[in-house]
């Protein structure tokens, strides 16, 4: 699903048809304000946003979306005079921009790659959420063991560091592997690296 926000009816309708011909469904809004007023907009993977509109303009809507942490990719639709604006929008995290009139295939290509990117980042995010949920299921002591495991310590070292018996470490370790659904130590280390990339 693609969301189109443009104040020109002919542009909205022709884009909708072009996307439909490319096998993509879309929803349309005639202004940024109309979009913001919609309490339950459909779930979509990409937004095509006109940069110049009466009322709240495209750039302003983009800023509002970012502030709300709505991170779907936004592709700006611009005229020739607005390219500097569009470039600055990209610096602020917009996915891409399209200059009117669009070159053959350009629109569908960009929309598809935006959707792909959004889906894969959404998958990553989902995985992170899952991992985080597994970590949350561990007890504080189990989390300590997990952290030291990831740092490369053996059972004996962990026992010393935490002041508990190696036997107890072994039991905690079994629980950790089980709760995290890790079938090996390297798998567990990878999971933790995914969750805490800044430590690498």
């Amino acid at each position: 699903m693609v969301c189109i926000v443009d104040d020109d009816e002919a542009i909205r309708e022709s884009l909708r048809l072009l996307l439909y011909a490319g096998g993509l469904r879309s929803c349309v809004y005639e202004s940024a304000d109309a979009f913001l007023k919609d309490d339950k907009p459909p779930v979509f993977d990409c937004m095509l946003l006109d940069i110049r509109m009466p009322g709240t303009d495209g750039l302003e809507l983009f800023r509002i979306l970012r502030r709300k942490h709505l991170l779907y990719p936004v592709i700006f639709i611009t005229g020739h005079g607005d390219i500097p604006l569009a470039v600055s929008a990209i610096k602020h995290g917009a996915f891409d921009f399209l200059t009117k009139p669009f070159r053959d295939g350009e629109l569908l290509d960009k929309v598809r790659s935006a959707i792909d990117q959004h889906r894969s980042s959404r998958k990553k995010l989902q995985k992170l959420h899952e991992l985080q949920a597994r970590v949350d299921a561990c007890t504080p002591r189990e989390r300590d063991v997990m952290r030291l495991l990831a740092e490369g310590l053996a059972n004996k070292g962990i026992a010393e560091a935490l002041g508990i018996s190696p036997r107890t470490v072994e039991i905690h370790r079994a629980h950790v592997m089980n709760k995290m659904a890790a079938d090996s130590l390297p798998a567990l280390v990878r999971m933790i690296a995914t969750l805490e990339p800044e430590k690498n």
């Binding site: 002919a10 542009i11 022709s14 048809l17 072009l18 011909a21 009139p101 669009f102 053959d104 629109l107």
Partner: peptide
Amino acid sequence: LTAIAAYADA
């Protein structure tokens, strides 16, 4: 012109 091109492409 943009609309025309898009309709024709579609």
